[in-house]
Structure formats: structure tokens, C-alpha cells
Simulated scan of single mutants.
Amino acid sequence: MIRYTLTRTALLLVGLFVASVLIFLTLRVLPGDIAQLIAGTNSTPEQVAALREQLGLDRSLSEQYFSWIGGIFRGELGTSLLTGSSVASELAEKAQVTVPLGIMALMIAVLFSVPLGVLSAMRRGRAAGTALSAGAQAIAAVPVVWAGMMLVVVFAVWLGWLPAQGFPRAGWQDPWAALSALILPALTIGIIEGAMLMRFVRSATLQAAGQDFVRTAAAKGLTRNAALVRHGLPVVGLSIITVLGLQVAGIIVGAVVIEQLFSLPGIGRMLVADVSARDLPKVQGELLALTGFVLIVGFVVDIVHRVIDPRQREAE
């Protein structure tokens, strides 16, 4: 187990390094001059050159990269070129919206996808199972923006139960107002991601139903469904843990779109605004933080899966 953990840690560090290089180089090939953008259209070439030197844009790419990485090792993700604020402090502020949104969306996805996926598998070949499977496929194909708009029309416009857009200025000092502002966005992401997870749960449950230990339990007197629930679902649960790590990436991508649709002051909306403003140091800090979060979640999922699955330990 120690050897596996050290190996996965090394792979995590390599992944973070590769991600940082790709993010840095990708942002540098974008057209336009950030110094010219900040200085304005009426600036002189001398002013633009002085600003480039001040921002360090006149240095080589390798010098700029290692300067940025050195700051990360000191706990600094960089400073915004346009506002002069710390990227880390702004990420911490915006995370108060994005993190609860992601947690709520993941909970919604799991709460409805797991039982419905299992039920769809147990009712395979019947009307209920066919309807659940077809519904999951249809919902998974729905664009997240369209789903969000439909939820707004129903719950905000027609019923008036929830706010359509925005987040309270007081933030979480008013917990109910903050929670209400996140319910529709979380439902939008959770339903779409949950539909995809439901299809996986159904497939994993059907696969578990065909295993020898489930058939043996049924042969000893348990009904088929009872044998599946008692002996097959623990195996399905291990598979779900692995897939949830991938779901986190889908939720982050969904948050970028949903925060725009619902006017939420989260990381996704900030990232889109910073890309439009060509605030490169801030964008690369934000992208590295998000990428690192996804990689760390995958790392934790792998370790947890290794700890609770005796088959992997025995294989090692």
C-alpha cells in the first residue's frame, strides 16, 4: 500500500507539472499584446515597452515560467495584471460560491442516480426499467443551458419558489438566501450529471447480477433481487466511487456555464471574465488551481478505492 501511495503521489506531481507547462504555453500563444491592452490604444510605444518590462513580459518564456512556479512554491498563485489583487485571495472568495454549488450538485446527482440506476437494472425488460433507462438517456443529452432555463421558467417564473439569478451580497451571512440562490443551479448540474451516472450504475448493477457469487447466493435460497442487493451492490459501490472522481470534472465544467446563466459570482464566471480581459497571470493561476483540484480528487479516489477493495490489495 505504501508503495502504491508513493507511486500515485509521484504521478500526481508529474501531472501537475505537465498541466502547469501546458497552461502556461497555451496562454502565451493567444493573439494580442497584454501590455498594449492594459496601456490602452492611445499609449505610445515607449509606454508599452516600459509596461512590458514592468510586468516581466520582456523576459524569455522559461524565465517567466520558473518565476511563476517559484511563486506557487511560496504559496502565491500570482497577481492580477488589471487589478493588482492576489489570485489566491480572489479564488478563496469565489470558492465560497463554487464549492457549495459543486457539493450540492454532486449530492443531487448521487441521491437520485444510484437508487434509480439500481431499480432500472432490477426491472430490466419491464416497462419501468425501460422507461427509466430511456429517461436517463434523454436527460443526459439535454444541453445544460436549456435545462437551466427550463428550471428557471418552472420554479422561478411560474411558481415563484426560488430566485432566478444572482447571489446575496451578504453571502453566507444570510444562509437561507445563499442556499436558495444555489438550488436551481445545483439542480441543473446535478440532474444532467446524475443522468449520466445513472446509466453507469445500471450497467454496473447488471454486470454484478451476472457474477458467480450473486448466482450462488440466489441458488442458496435468496431471491434474485435480494441476492443482488446483499452481495452485488457493494461491488457496484466500489465502481461508483471511481466514477465520482470523473464526475467532479464534469461538475466543474458545468459550473463555468451555469454561473454565467445564473449570474453567480463564482470561480467559473471569474475565469470567463479574466479570459476576456486577457489577464494572463490570473487566468493561469485559476486554471492551475482547478486542474490541481481535479487531479487531487482523482488521487484521493484511487487511494480510497485501494483501501476499501481487498481484491486490489491481494493482487499487489
Rank of each mutant, 00 (worst) to 15 (best):
L16M: 11
L16T: 07
L16F: 05
A19V: 06
A19S: 15
A19N: 07
T26G: 14
L30R: 04
L30S: 09
D33P: 01
G40C: 05
T41L: 08
T41A: 14
E53H: 09
L57Q: 08
R59C: 01
R59L: 03
S62C: 00
F66W: 14
I72E: 01
F73W: 09
F73I: 09
T79G: 07
S85W: 00
S89F: 10
E90W: 07
A95F: 06
V97S: 08
M104Q: 07
S113V: 11
P115F: 13
L119H: 04
T130K: 08
A131I: 15
A134M: 13
Q137L: 15
A141K: 03
V142M: 15
V144Q: 07
M149Q: 13
V152R: 12
A156W: 04
L159A: 12
G160Y: 03
P163W: 13
F167Q: 08
A170S: 14
A178C: 10
A186G: 03
G194F: 07
L206P: 09
A208T: 10
A209Q: 14
A219W: 01
I251Q: 05
Q260M: 11
Q260T: 15
S263N: 15
G268P: 03
M270I: 00
D274R: 11
S276R: 14
L287Q: 04
L290V: 14
T291D: 03
V294N: 09
V297P: 09
F299M: 09
F299N: 03
V300G: 10
V304N: 10
V307W: 14
I308K: 05
